[in-house]
């Protein structure tokens, strides 16, 4: 019965090793998808290259279907999975800031590390900027603490908030993904040929 760590099949140390292996493979596949290259990432925002959308949404769907089906088969105790707490307004604002930074810098935090270790100079600058941002954030944390905790909702899932079964949410996510895939394809044909 998974999750293995929560059921004590391996220790915290082993967990760290597993995390290292997972992290390295995550980075490897990001690089293989071309995510170590800022121009490729930024092209998403101009509908010229939909790789980011395809890769990310495929990953989300595979993980979601996997978790739910495993839980359905009784292989996985879903209540033991850690859910990031939701701070709805703080996360909306943070998401917007991250999006702006992504469009300007051409990287998101994970891919900037991938870019940096594969020798892209712009990624190094991006990382430097991210570090500076973290430092500033840390230093001014007391004054923005209320903002940071704004809209705390606990460890909720969409199905809890919308009060429907998680299967229905999963189905909606699949439909949304297919619509987005098709929409992105259409947008690429429509806008992708414009010269920047």
């Amino acid at each position: 019965m998974a999750p293995f760590y929560k059921y004590g099949f391996f220790s915290e140390q082993t967990g760290l090793i597993v995390a290292l292996i997972l992290g390295i493979s995550f980075g490897f596949w990001l690089e293989r998808s071309g995510f170590g290259y800022s121009r490729k990432l930024a092209l998403q925002f101009y509908f010229k290259d939909n790789t980011v959308l395809y890769v990310m949404f495929t990953a989300i769907l595979v993980a979601m279907l996997g978790v739910l089906f495993f839980s359905l088969f009784g292989w996985l105790d879903i209540t033991k999975i850690y859910i990031n707490p939701t701070y709805i307004w703080a996360q909306l604002i943070g998401g917007l800031i991250l999006g702006v930074g992504f469009a300007i810098g051409g990287y998101c935090p994970g891919t900037s590390v991938v870019g940096a270790v594969t020798g892209h100079i712009d990624a190094l600058f991006f990382l430097g900027g991210a570090m500076t941002g973290m430092f500033v954030f840390g230093e001014m944390f007391p004054s923005i603490e209320d903002l940071y905790n704004w809209g705390y909702m606990g460890n909720v899932r969409l199905s809890d908030v919308l009060n429907v079964s998680s299967g229905v949410v999963a189905f909606a996510a699949v439909v949304l993904a297919i619509v987005m895939f098709k929409g992105a394809e259409w947008a690429q044909n429509r806008f992708g040929k414009e010269v920047l």
């Binding site: 739910l68 839980s71 359905l72 299967g167 999963a170 189905f171």
Partner: peptide, 11 residues
């Protein structure tokens, strides 16, 4: 797969 989930007792 999504459709199966929507009608299965996941929760």
């Amino acid at each position: 797969l999504g459709l199966i989930l929507a009608f299965s007792p996941v929760d």
